[in-house]
Write a protein that binds this DNA or RNA. Structure first.
Lengths: 145, 145
DNA sequence: TATAAAACCTATTAAAATGATATGTAAAGG
DNA sequence: CCTTTACATATCATTTTAATAGGTTTTATA
């Protein structure tokens, strides 16, 4: 029941891009250094994000990535759903209609459905902008002390 | 982000025991057959549950298991926390205080904390008795149709 | 126009986790 | 004493995870 590095790194990469929106295109090299993540591994995560309209790309010298939208238009749920493949806590929820033989009298199905719902609702309720705001608030508090 | 078979099987085993509370001690053989789970694999799950006061055991002929408490005294959260090791969505939440170097200015930490909270709250809000009740309601509806 | 820096692409791999099976030993009721 | 059960430990095949490696292609700029 763990979020993989793919999901966590993708989220950190997009937060990093959001924090550097004004710097034009940002290279993976810079992101990898700031976030202490392997650049080569990030290269594998990018195409997953590119299946959806998440990034704008510039190849070649001075190239890199920037966000395709403003940070308030990304939810954590969307990012993790892309990178994790699915956020469902059990595989049988991944395919509708349910393919499980015992689906009709499965005592636990409603538990998993409910869990799936609260996970999605929570993660879809948080945007990149929310994370930026909280981060700035955090820094402000640190400065006060 | 999946619940493993250990957790799912443990839950189904305890529901099975709850449904057969009146039958005295219930053998793993019977549970395995009814639930279509390997008996040998269930044998590995039992000691995990036994770390907490979940089961009553009777060895030898006519032996087996029964619940240590009434079904309303077990939450799904308790069962899954035992069998899954932890329900935290990221490893850094498993140890307090947080061992992560970057913990103090980690932008994503609060996201994971919040996710952890909603997962726990949801799963701790469901008891075995709730599952039994819903199952009986389901059967009643099927009979009506 | 050469070149360095960037994205892009594909293969390989080491380690860990998953989901079991196999082979026993110990206890206890009939 | 014998059968049935729990209990214990080892082994194993497969998959997933989390990378690393080694290239090719694109492109701004000197």
């Amino acid at each position: 029941m763990k979020i993989s590095t793919k999901g966590r790194y993708a989220l950190r990469m997009l937060i990093d891009l959001a924090e550097h929106q004004d710097s034009g295109y940002v290279s993976l090299k810079d992101i990898a250094q700031r976030q202490s993540i392997s650049k080569k591994y990030l290269e594998q995560i990018v195409p997953i994000l590119n299946r959806s309209d998440i990034l704008r790309t510039s190849r070649g010298f001075q190239g890199g990535y920037r966000l395709a939208r403003t940070p308030d238009k990304y939810t954590v749920g969307e990012i993790l759903r892309l990178t994790e493949g699915s956020l469902s806590p059990v595989a049988c929820l991944d395919h509708e209609p349910n393919e499980c033989q015992n689906c009709d009298n499965c005592a636990t199905l409603s538990v998993w459905r409910g869990l799936y719902r609260v996970i999605n609702e929570y993660l879809d309720g948080i945007t990149l902008q929310d994370i930026l705001d909280q981060q700035r608030q955090q820094y402000a508090n640190d400065y006060m002390i």
